[in-house]
């Protein structure tokens, strides 16, 4: 495992921890899109179907368990927790799951590396992960005051994507036959979705003003 891949996994882990920290300590999920969190839970569920059948390393299995567990835990907090759910911004978080899930599923049926069930689900999870951040970005745009933790959460997620691209470039040059168009293109699309957010995030950081996305 190269340094880009490991750093990518760690920033991904950081994003989840920042979000759980916010929800658990402040008991608030203000500014967090439940739709995005539910989509991530579905992403991990579809992708890690091989968790019991395909052992790669202890690191891999533990990380998969963390991502699965944390995504469902976050969804549970926002939907069910007595206090946390009160801060959920239902009016502004209106994105429809199906508009993302259905096209991704159809695309996975049409374009995949192998048409076995697990492969299709894996491909579906890649496509869905690429666009799962959209409800969150829409919500950020509608939210006047984005708090620091929410901003950091999205920042870490974007950093994770950018580092994974560095990882693919590194692997392409160091490993034989390492070509995965589907993974790369969906990963690139996913990273590009953060470009706008990054621009405003760095500007607010540089000018030391509160982060706000233009409507």
């Amino acid at each position: 495992m190269n340094i880009f891949r490991f750093s990518g996994d760690m920033t991904h882990l950081m994003s989840v921890l920042v979000l759980l920290l916010k929800i658990h300590t402040i008991k608030s999920c203000a500014g967090i899109s439940l739709k995005t969190q539910e989509l991530y839970a579905l992403v991990f569920l579809a992708r890690y179907l091989d968790i019991v059948t395909n052992f790669i390393s202890l690191y891999n299995t533990i990380m998969k368990l963390i991502f699965l567990g944390s995504s469902f835990m976050i969804v549970w907090y926002i939907r069910r927790h007595r206090i946390v759910r009160r801060s959920y911004d239902k009016e502004h978080d209106t994105f429809r799951h199906l508009f993302l899930v259905l096209p991704c599923f159809i695309l996975a049926l049409l374009i995949n590396e192998r048409s076995a069930f697990k492969e299709i689900m894996w491909t579906f999870s890649l496509y869905l992960e690429a666009v799962a951040i959209l409800p969150q970005l829409v919500l950020l745009q509608r939210t006047k005051n984005i708090d620091n933790l929410t901003g950091q959460y999205v920042f870490f997620l974007g950093a994770y994507r950018a580092l994974y691209i560095c990882n693919w470039i590194y692997r392409y040059f160091t490993e034989p036959h390492y070509v995965h168009w589907i993974t790369w293109i969906s990963g690139l699309v996913q990273t590009l979705l953060y470009a706008d957010f990054f621009y405003y995030y760095f500007n607010s950081w540089k000018n030391n003003v509160k982060l706000q996305l233009p409507a």
């Binding site: 996994d9 091989d50 395909n54 998969k64 590396e113 894996w122 993974t183």
Partner: peptide
């Protein structure tokens, strides 16, 4: 094999 190579990322 192809499968483990393809699935070794998170």
């Amino acid at each position: 094999d192809l499968e483990s190579e393809f699935h070794d990322e998170l």
